[in-house]
Design a binder for these strands. Structure first.
Length: 246
DNA sequence: AATTCATCCAACCGCTTTGGG
DNA sequence: TCCCAAAGCGGTTGGATGAAT
């Protein structure tokens, strides 16, 4: 006997979310908050499993999401944090308000890994790909700076002072704050500005990163209402159309 | 214009962790 | 302490899109 599926699969919809589904999920969360993800789809009238709803909310519908391409400084921070934390994307994402672990993970896999390889750095170990004699300095320095990272301090400032001299990335033109040469992969600036194929994009809402989680996951429906009533926060949600709050 | 290849990223799968009884 | 359900997490996939031929 295998593990029980997380939910009953029969009859459940999979694949990309439609506007209507997004609409239903957001409206439900607005009105009810989140107590139990497993009950959300049923109560919201969605033919999805709770897991799918949770993922959609966290990665896409949360109003506090910061949208658009990651900045160069964010990219540099990811590299430094990854050297400390490894593939613990949620831990890394915790240092980036409005960014999701999925987004950072995708960015790492599609852009940063290539960037590091171009620089002759192993993305896994953060050591030079060819020069094994040089391995100690960078990793040791990074490990030293990681203790504070694990405790909530990013440790970035500490690294910033050390990495310039010892980190393997530090060869070449240093445009960024962490000594990483300014080699940008093409096509990093593709920032959607409107709904396209069921996707939602918006400017940053600037509501901070405390929107949900806490006692009842969702801090308050009032908070959401406040966000929704703010015209400036709705740049990319126009597709929901009028009557969303009804 | 048609086809192939490369890239991106939303979504899924399944394992691990957490929390309540 | 143990068990189980739910949530969290990271690896992976597959469809959409754009670039190259």
């Amino acid at each position: 006997m295998g593990r029980q599926p997380c939910c009953e699969k029969d009859g459940l919809k999979r694949g990309p979310w439609t506007i209507e589904e997004d609409h239903k999920l957001m409206r439900f969360i607005l009105n009810n908050g989140i107590q139990c993800w497993r009950t959300v789809p049923q109560l919201a009238g969605l033919m999805r499993c709770g897991k799918s709803c949770r993922l959609r909310w966290i990665n896409y519908l949360r109003p506090d999401l910061k949208r658009g391409a990651l900045t160069e400084s964010e990219e540099d921070m990811i590299i430094n944090l990854h050297s400390c934390l490894g593939n613990r994307w949620s831990k890394i994402a915790a240092h980036f308000p409005g960014r999701t672990d999925n987004e950072i993970k995708n960015h790492w896999n599609t852009r940063i890994k290539k960037k590091l390889k171009l620089l002759g750095v192993d993305p896994l170990t953060h050591k030079p790909l060819n020069n094994h004699n040089n391995c100690n300095s960078a990793s040791e320095v990074l490990n030293q700076s990681c203790s504070s990272t694990e405790e909530g301090n990013t440790g970035i400032n500490l690294q910033n002072t050390i990495v310039f001299n010892q980190f393997p990335y530090s060869q070449g033109t240093q445009n960024s704050s962490f000594g990483i040469p300014d080699i940008r992969i093409a096509d990093t600036s593709k920032i959607p500005t409107s709904l396209d194929g069921g996707s939602v994009y918006s400017e940053r809402t600037d509501f901070g990163n405390t929107f949900y989680r806490g006692n009842d996951e969702l801090q308050s429906a009032d908070y959401l209402r406040q966000w929704i009533s703010n015209p400036g926060s709705w740049g990319g949600y126009n597709h929901f159309g009028q009557g969303f709050l009804s």
